[in-house]
Design a protein around this nucleic acid. Structure first.
Lengths: 247, 247
DNA sequence: CTTGACCACTGGTCTGGACCTGCGTACTGT
DNA sequence: ACAGTACGCAGGTCCAGACCAGTGGTCAAG
């Protein structure tokens, strides 16, 4: 037994102590949008290696307290963007709707994992529609909707509007939509996703997977990928809790 | 005019290429629970610095493909644990219920941000109940329930059971629970949370915040923190949306 | 006034070390 | 047979430095 009577406060890692100091500095001496000193100056000021400082900055970024852009600098972030995830999929409140049409078409190149969830063969033809969501001119997420051609022969042009997957499905299937199953997990952005989200590859993202059930099978799959640093998912029938007085 | 006719594949970062190679290796040559070679050997084998290898490993861990334990090694992970987030908060399917009682009591030390959401003064007395959830003997999450003493004078002993926040609230308020608002976002584990979750400080976590409305105010706040690497949040399991509205 | 080349500055990537600390096992004394 | 210790190995932390790659401004040429 290595039990010693001394207090031995277990010595937090240096990067965590640094994070705490930076949080206080951010909350007391800086305001939203203000640029912090560069990493080399900060590491010198705190007497740590730049790698250690970056470990603290990365956590602050993941928390949504900082935004970092190569070539530009590190700025104090504002509150996170609320992404409303409704049971009835009515639209995108607070987000400029469907700003960019990225991909519309039918493909056989569906990741095997998704093909299994859709209940189709690995190389079956599947309609794919991808949109990017922006908020205040900044990319916040990518939504990709998969519909097997076995379910819907052709994708009508109404996909170009600003509605979400369920609404599209409702049109396509003449109100046969029966239910949905949804999951949320953390993933990392692949290079192409990272480029669309204006982040480096491997950035943490929130992945919302929604399976739409119609006619006793999974008729469509919506995979939405949001920047973990800037987004918060809001659930519930009521409006999001007012975060105005939360300083 | 930087446009050249060459393909110029834009050179993925080395850590991402490494990640891709490791994913293939994991899926083809390893099985769940199997231990990978140590980091020094792996970095030598792939001809990269250990820091670069670790950058790839950290992403694989965040994706839930690997589990790393100091002193033990890096093992291939199994599928993520499904955390059921129901609208009616009926319990914890698939998770050993309420394995450890951590804190039961009344405190004035509530983070200012939570006090604001609860609609109480920063130093008001608030009941706090904290539980840790395990799955297969592994810690997966921490749930903390806050109830202002202004809402409920005393916390009855039935908090010791395995039920979730809403059920408790229903008992406390005699079925006056009116609704809830829920949000999901990414955060980092503070040292104490990290210790309970058996992870280093600053580890990415999924934070599920649920505000319970009763009597026209926020009567309680449940903050659940799950390991982002091992958990997946599941919503609306087999819950058919009864709305068959004819559009 | 507009355009484009240039360039200082920023965060991003990568190296090759060093040492710390938890874990598990082998050994060893009782 | 058992408990305690010692030790090797694993991942975790930290360092000092180098170079890469976008950003955004300056400034001269058209």
């Amino acid at each position: 037994m290595a039990t010693t009577a001394t207090v031995e406060v277990a010595a937090e890692p240096k990067y965590w102590h640094l994070r705490t100091v930076l949080v206080q500095a951010i909350e007391s001496e800086f305001t939203t949008g203000q640029t912090l000193p560069n990493e080399r100056d900060l590491s010198a000021r705190f007497g740590v290696a730049r790698a250690t400082l970056r470990q603290a900055l990365e956590q602050l970024e993941l928390e949504g307290r900082l935004h970092r852009r190569r070539g530009a600098g590190t700025v104090v972030a504002g509150p996170r963007v609320d992404i409303t995830i409704g049971t009835h999929d009515e639209g995108w409140p607070g987000v400029e709707p469907g700003d960019r049409d990225l991909v519309d078409g039918t493909t056989a190149a569906v990741p095997g994992r998704l093909a299994a969830q859709l209940g189709v063969r690995p190389r079956a033809m599947v309609h794919r529609v991808r949109r990017r969501q922006l908020s205040m001119r900044q990319p916040v997420g990518i939504e990709c909707l998969y519909v097997p051609r076995a379910v819907v022969p052709r994708v009508p042009e109404l996909l170009g509007d600003n509605r979400r997957a369920a609404l599209v499905l409702r049109h396509l299937r003449n109100n046969t939509l029966e239910g949905l199953t949804r999951s949320v997990e953390v993933g990392v952005a692949e290079p192409e996703e990272a480029r669309l989200l204006e982040r480096p590859p491997g950035t943490a993202v929130l992945v919302v997977t929604t399976a739409y059930t119609a006619g006793g099978r999974t008729a469509a799959l919506a995979v939405a990928t949001y920047r973990a640093d800037t987004c918060r998912l809001a659930f519930g029938e009521d409006a999001p809790i007012g975060a105005r007085s939360a300083s």
